[in-house]
């Protein structure tokens, strides 16, 4: 299947899978409690264990969800990072859409603005 055939809708195909392999592997490992502890204790050391590049480390450490996905992160894996802070998935969605959280809830998901 060709990527990018549907506007603003990246499919997680070979190129994303290859590009994001390190980030996703690091995030996958957060499914284990011991790794979550290591992440909380020394985030950079934890990321270095998975040989993340400087660019990837920066994206993770600044919780730049848009950038993580741009670098090949797949949301299902990087959600495990959001479990640590914790960050609601709708905020991650808003970051992908490039919108404020409130606008995202209202315009995209159809939630009432103050409800």
């Amino acid at each position: 299947m060709a990527n990018q055939s549907i506007p603003d809708t990246p499919l997680f195909d070979r190129s994303g899978s290859i590009r994001g392999y390190r980030i996703n592997k690091m995030a996958m490992a957060l499914g284990q409690a011991a790794n979550r502890e290591a992440f909380k204790e020394n985030e950079e050391a934890y990321l270095d264990r998975f040989r993340l590049t400087a660019e990837e480390k920066k994206a993770v450490m600044s919780r730049d969800w848009h950038e993580m996905v741009r670098l090949g992160g797949n949301l299902f894996f990087i959600l495990k990072i959001s479990a640590i802070d914790p960050t609601p998935i709708t905020k991650i969605g808003a970051a992908q859409a490039g919108m404020s959280h409130e606008d995202f809830l209202y315009e995209r998901l159809g939630k009432r603005a103050n409800g």
């Binding site: 603003d8 797949n74 949301l75 969605g93 808003a94 992908q96 998901l109």
Partner: peptide, 9 residues
């Protein structure tokens, strides 16, 4: 969940 169309329903 991903891409600029995130939140599409």
């Amino acid at each position: 969940l991903q891409g600029a169309r995130a939140g599409f329903i």
